[in-house]
Computed example of a mutant assay.
Amino acid sequence: MVTTEDPLPLLPDQPVKPRRRRWWSVVVWLMAVPFVLWAALRVFGLDTGFPAVQLIAFTPYVAMASFVPLGVALLTKRLWPAVVTAVATVALAACVLPRWIADSDPEPANGPGLRVLSVNMLMGGADTATIVGLVRSLGVDLVTLQEYTPEAKAALRTAGLDELLPNSVSYPRPGVTGSAVYSRFPVTDLGYRQFPSDFGQAQAGVRVPGAGDVRVESVHPCAPATAHGSGCWEHDIVQEPAATPDGAVNLLIGDFNATLDHEKFRALLNTGYRDAADVAGAGLQASWPYDERWFIPGVVLDHVVADRRVGVRKVSVHRVPDSDHKAVYAELVLPRGAA
Rank of each mutant, 00 (worst) to 15 (best):
V2R: 14
E5R: 11
P7I: 08
P12M: 10
P15V: 14
R20E: 10
W24R: 13
V26I: 14
V27D: 02
V33K: 03
V43K: 05
F50D: 12
I56E: 01
A57E: 00
A63V: 03
P69Y: 01
P69M: 04
L70G: 02
V72E: 08
L75F: 14
T89H: 12
A93C: 07
V116P: 00
V135Q: 01
G139Y: 01
L142D: 00
T144P: 05
A155D: 06
G160I: 05
L161T: 08
E163R: 14
P166Y: 11
G175W: 09
R184C: 07
F185V: 01
R193V: 10
S197C: 11
S197N: 08
D198Y: 14
A202M: 13
V206Y: 03
V216D: 00
S218I: 05
V219E: 01
H220G: 01
G229T: 05
G231L: 10
D246G: 14
D261M: 10
E263C: 13
R266T: 08
A267Y: 07
L269E: 07
A276N: 05
V279F: 07
G281K: 12
A282D: 14
W288M: 02
P289K: 09
F295T: 13
D322G: 10
D324V: 00
K326I: 06
E331G: 11
E331S: 14
L332E: 04
L332A: 05
P335F: 06
P335R: 06
